[in-house]
Design a protein around this nucleic acid. Structure first.
Lengths: 154, 154
DNA sequence: AGAGTAAGTTCGGTTGTTGAACTGACCGAC
DNA sequence: GTCGGTCAGTTCAACAACCGAACTTACTCT
């Protein structure tokens, strides 16, 4: 009676949920993006149970989102670096950031943190568009359909 | 020893994680977006444990993402409709859709489903950009900083 | 009368999370 | 040369959440 897994489902949302539905995982990724690489660093920043953090880091390494790299050998110490797959995941966190900022603070209040461009200092506001039209998504016009290019074995 | 809650954390990603980190929740929202509104409909589509689905729907109603509407009174029956807050959440699912499609299928394979425009039939490919510049996000140039407009009590 | 439908609730058993303490290998200071 | 500190975990018992299956209530349809 294990927790139901979604990583074999045919839907991209389901498979992604399997990853980030693991409690703590998006926050571990957030820490990775803000430059923290070491176990202690992340554990202290999040105050997450150490056993859970171990499990999450291992999962993220297995999934190819982080890479476990030895940065000293005596005693052996490791750090966790974002891979290209992990870096690409930032877009998901950015969408969460935007929606959370827009909807999860009481009226008249704003979150205490914003995203900024490191060089210009300008505030960055993530927005999801359709790559082909450049327009924001219109939920009412969307539907899910069969992928004509899909390999039948997938 | 309850599961750690993130809904009071000062970070938008943390608060959003508190919602979608609940197992099944993103999939319940996906079903809502694909037009399913009734308990049985959603339960059958997902094959989720009924008690869990009850808990998730109640949470989403509490959070103001779904609205519980009586559609017949004898016996009382209810359906769940997306609110504006719930509709806005589609952007997060779209970002998950894109990342999952790009990274969670083995090489040479593609997901069996795509997003399409209901009217034109064109394939829709979600992309996250910065609303101000119109450019895709560059992770290396981003940092998190204090919000100059934040209300001190938030 | 009996079967079916809808929206849940209840149940016992299993898995996952939590906080705190512990481990083992090293380092640097006294 | 031992004492305290750092780092990256592991171990443990208590508790919470999840699982599948069966049950409930109040109708309607045949």
């Amino acid at each position: 009676m294990r927790r139901t897994r979604f990583d074999d489902w045919p839907c991209p949302i389901a498979r992604t949920t399997d990853l980030i539905g693991d409690w703590w995982t998006p926050l571990v990724m957030r820490e990775a993006f803000s430059g923290r690489r070491r176990f202690e660093e992340i554990q202290t920043a999040l105050d997450a149970p150490r056993a859970v953090l171990t499990a999450r880091l291992n999962r993220l390494v297995e999934e190819g989102m982080l890479e476990r790299v030895e940065y000293q050998s005596n005693p052996p110490r490791f750090e966790y670096r974002l891979t290209p797959k992990g870096l690409a995941f930032w877009d998901v966190l950015a969408a969460m950031w935007r929606w959370g900022s827009d909807w999860l603070w009481p009226d008249g209040q704003e979150p205490p943190v914003v995203l900024k461009d490191r060089e210009t200092g300008a505030i960055v506001t993530p927005l999801v568009i359709d790559e082909h039209t450049g327009e924001p998504l219109d939920v009412r016009r969307l539907r899910m359909g069969r992928n004509p290019a899909a390999n039948p074995t997938s």
